[in-house]
Write a protein that binds this DNA or RNA. Structure first.
Length: 498
DNA sequence: TGCGGCTATTG
DNA sequence: CACAATAGCCGCAG
């Protein structure tokens, strides 16, 4: 039972220090949480006060929390007592929710996910240093041995682009404004210089082609290059970052050090260690399947029987699969224009329960009403957490903001519920892994990477699949909704199958 | 030095 | 292109 994780679930907040968790459990106003001030002439720390961790106003004493010195058994006992009190209060708060039994289950899964995060941070992801260095070298050249060489390589990369520029001007390729005026010089007018916009240029001049290649290499040099390896790859060839069990809008897991956004080109470097393989499992179309479960839409639930959910939807709407997919994603993200717009209206008619669920979330978001996900996580939409302090806003601005809040709410209900199911799955896999001496080494929103002994690979793959079915049954009592995973046994992350 | 804008990568 | 993240560099304000 992780007090901080349960607090985040109940309060819809990211911050979860002891003072906040305590205040939340006791229903105290978070604005009145006392902050530690260094004692001065007028505010002496009262020695006898610090013996009692709780102040007269009900908040925890900041001085007591930060007390230095040896950890005595008396102090430990007090901590345990406080923790137990918070846990009991959290438990009754969860039970009091309209989705009470669901929320209590989520609280346990979220707690298990925190434990998993601690292990992920400690263990790290196996990454073959020599393979990684070769991939980097192919893109930006060998590791520079001096500062001068580093600058030299950089200048040479820049020159590959600037040699196509008209003479005379000085342009900094790292400055978007400079790049834009450089493009204007050769007769290309663009509102911004994003890659997708430059790629759309028909019959691109050599400068544009060179610029796009430069951008790729520059990304490697600045973010996923030698410095990245030096900072995050340990001597044991494990890539380590910090992990958070429930972050951001809807409680997804997050990770730093590039663990969640590693470019596809780098993935061949993620190699299983000697005597081991990866069991890679990723969920198919988790978000629309989750939408079917949380909304209880009978027709959408029936569609989840298909391995490719978009096929029966396309058939139902009488459109191509690609259109159906764009429409479903658009509905979940709050898109109202574009290619999916027509199909969006057909979706409304075909799956009214699911679409109403999304629309009601959107309306709540626009009007600043807080929501809870299927699993009980509070999605904060009230103005105090959205209004920008001190900025005067006109009508148009506030309507834009309300629309953004509607899209946010719509998506958070689906993405958040998907994150909850994912964590139930991960927690089950984590627990069952011990029997096979296997470990989860990466969680990626809808994908698990398990590092397992070769001799247990098939059994682990089997276990991961059955854990998904168990997770679905525990998470959602609606047995009509089917969840599918693509599971493979591979030597390196980039492998399609083993 | 801090922060918003722009750009890239991922699900 | 809408949703969610992490992270780098530039340019500006303080």
């Amino acid at each position: 039972w992780d007090l901080a994780a349960v607090h985040r679930l109940l309060a819809g907040e990211w911050r979860a220090d002891a003072g906040r968790v305590w205040a939340g459990a006791h229903g105290l106003d978070t604005d009145s949480i006392p902050v530690r001030r260094p004692p001065d002439l007028f505010h002496q720390a009262a020695a006898d006060d610090q013996r009692h961790p709780v102040r007269p106003d009900g908040h925890l004493h900041p001085q007591w929390l930060e007390e230095a010195g040896p950890i005595t058994s008396a102090r430990l006992a007090t901590w345990a007592q406080l923790a137990l009190e918070v846990a009991q209060l959290q438990h009754s708060q969860l039970r009091g929710l309209s989705c009470g039994s669901q929320a209590s289950a989520t609280a346990r899964a979220e707690s298990a996910a925190e434990l998993l995060c601690a292990e992920l941070e400690f263990d790290g992801l196996p990454l073959d240093r020599s393979v990684a260095e070769r991939i980097i070298a192919d893109s930006i050249g060998p590791r520079p041995s001096s500062e001068i060489e580093l600058v030299d390589q950089r200048n040479r990369r820049d020159a590959e682009v600037l040699c196509h520029a008209p003479p005379g001007g000085r342009f900094d390729l790292r400055s978007p404004a400079d790049v834009r005026s450089l493009l204007r010089r050769i007769g290309i007018e663009v509102p911004d210089t994003r890659a997708w916009r430059l790629e759309a240029i028909v019959d691109p001049p050599p400068l544009v082609t060179a610029l796009l290649a430069w951008r790729k290499a520059e990304r490697v040099a600045s973010t996923y290059g030698y410095t990245w390896l030096d900072n995050h790859l340990g001597a044991d060839s494990r890539l380590r970052g910090s992990w958070s069990g429930s972050d951001g809008a809807a409680g997804r897991m997050t990770a730093s050090a590039g663990l969640h956004n590693m470019p596809a080109e780098m993935r061949p470097a993620v190699v299983a260690e000697n005597g081991r393989v990866f069991v890679r499992a990723d969920l198919g179309q988790i978000e629309p399947r989750v939408l079917a479960a949380v909304s209880g839409d009978p027709l959408l639930a029936a569609a989840t029987a298909a391995p490719d959910l978009y096929a029966p939807i396309a058939e139902q709407l009488g459109v191509a699969r690609s259109i159906a997919k764009v429409a479903v994603l658009g509905a979940m993200y709050g898109q109202t224009t574009g290619r999916g717009a027509d199909a969006l209206r057909s979706l409304d008619r075909a799956y009214p329960v699911a679409m109403t669920y999304l629309r009601e979330a959107s309306v709540a978001g626009r009007s600043g009403r807080n929501l809870r996900t299927f699993g009980g996580r509070l999605i904060r939409l009230d103005s105090s957490s959205w209004v920008v302090e001190g900025s005067a806003h006109d009508d148009r601005e506030s309507r834009t903001r309300d629309a953004a809040r509607g899209r946010y709410a719509r998506n958070a209900m689906v993405q958040g519920a998907a994150a909850e199911l994912f964590k139930v799955w991960a927690a089950l896999v984590r627990a069952r892994c011990t029997a096979f001496d296997a470990r989860i080494v990466l969680c990626l929103h809808d994908e698990l990477l398990v590092h397992a002994p070769i001799e247990h690979a098939a059994a682990v793959a089997e276990m991961v699949g059955s854990c998904l079915q168990e997770a679905a049954a525990r998470w959602s009592p609606d047995r009509r909704v089917r969840f599918v995973a693509d599971i493979s046994i591979i030597a390196r992350w980039s492998d399609v199958s083993g």
